[in-house]
């Protein structure tokens, strides 16, 4: 039993780390709705996985990735605003998923998909999340400056020789992976808040992008571990527990303005 708590703790730390790492750019590039859309499509991935009788974690990754890349390619070509495009995708995929789920041979608890379920976590999940954290760390180690330059001005970055397309696609890949791997802990409805609350909380305390990154990592890890502990102790659903702690962090840090 203690071993199992250890796995949950590890999963919480790694989830917080990865979400905060990716979250800062989601906030800086005003992509939170994009993140939310990917999260909504994840439920379609679950439904397809159950229908095809494969491990739904893989179908979630596939669906989120396809959606992410498709949106990335479409956003510059369609006459619809990205806001409309994402809104359509988010809710139509959610609706299709809910319909499909009524045909699945295996019954699955919708609650645990939407809000996370502590009891569903396995050691494998913790390892996968750790691997993802490592990948994200490597990606940032190589492309941190590129990402900042793309955020500042995409065309300027391109003109200066940054491999814009590749970096953006890799970022979407990592975002799809973190969404797929965090469904069990936070649920599809609340993943976005884990991406944006920690950076938002850290913003007021930061004067450089790196400070904001460090701040949000700290807040996210505390929220992840704290939320899972509360969920364990008080039998709260794990997703809402994590988000409540992150929100509390945001509110508590709000008066401490320092950054510009």
């Amino acid at each position: 039993m203690n071993d199992w708590l250890l796995w949950i703790g590890l999963a919480g730390i790694m989830l917080g780390l990865t979400a905060a790492l990716l979250g800062v750019f989601v906030v800086w590039q005003k992509q939170s709705y994009f993140g939310a859309t990917l999260a909504h499509t994840a439920l379609l991935g679950v439904a397809l996985g159950l229908l095809l009788r494969i491990d739904w974690q893989w179908s979630v990754i596939a669906v989120a990735l396809l959606t992410g890349w498709a949106v990335h390619a479409l956003m510059r070509r369609t006459r619809l605003s990205s806001d409309t495009l994402l809104g359509m995708l988010a809710h139509s995929t959610l609706a299709i998923a809910l319909v499909l789920l009524s045909y699945t041979p295996v019954q699955i608890s919708l609650d645990s998909l939407l809000f996370g379920d502590l009891l569903a976590i396995t050691p494998q999940d913790a390892w996968l999340l750790s691997g993802l954290t490592l990948l994200t760390g490597l990606f940032y180690w190589r492309h941190w400056r590129d990402l900042l330059n793309i955020t500042l001005n995409r065309e300027l970055a391109f003109a200066e020789g940054v491999p814009v397309q590749r970096v953006e696609r890799l970022f979407i890949l990592l975002l799809s992976l973190v969404i797929a791997l965090s469904i069990k802990l936070v649920g599809v409805l609340l993943i976005t808040s884990l991406l944006i609350l920690p950076p938002a909380a850290a913003r007021h305390l930061s004067r450089t992008p790196e400070q904001m990154l460090a701040g949000s990592v700290l807040i996210a890890v505390v929220s992840g571990v704290g939320g899972l502990a509360l969920s364990w102790q008080l039998d709260w659903p794990s997703g809402p527990a994590i988000v409540v702690v992150a929100t509390a962090g945001f509110l508590l840090l709000l008066p401490l303005r320092r950054g510009q």
Binding site: V27, W28, Q29, K30, L148, T151, L152, N153, L156, P199, A200, R203, S206, R207, T208, P209, Q211, M212, G259, Q260
Partner: peptide, 10 residues
């Protein structure tokens, strides 16, 4: 050059 207010950068 439009930079979002959320990005702390001198």
């Amino acid at each position: 050059l439009h930079v979002d207010a959320s990005l702390p950068m001198t």
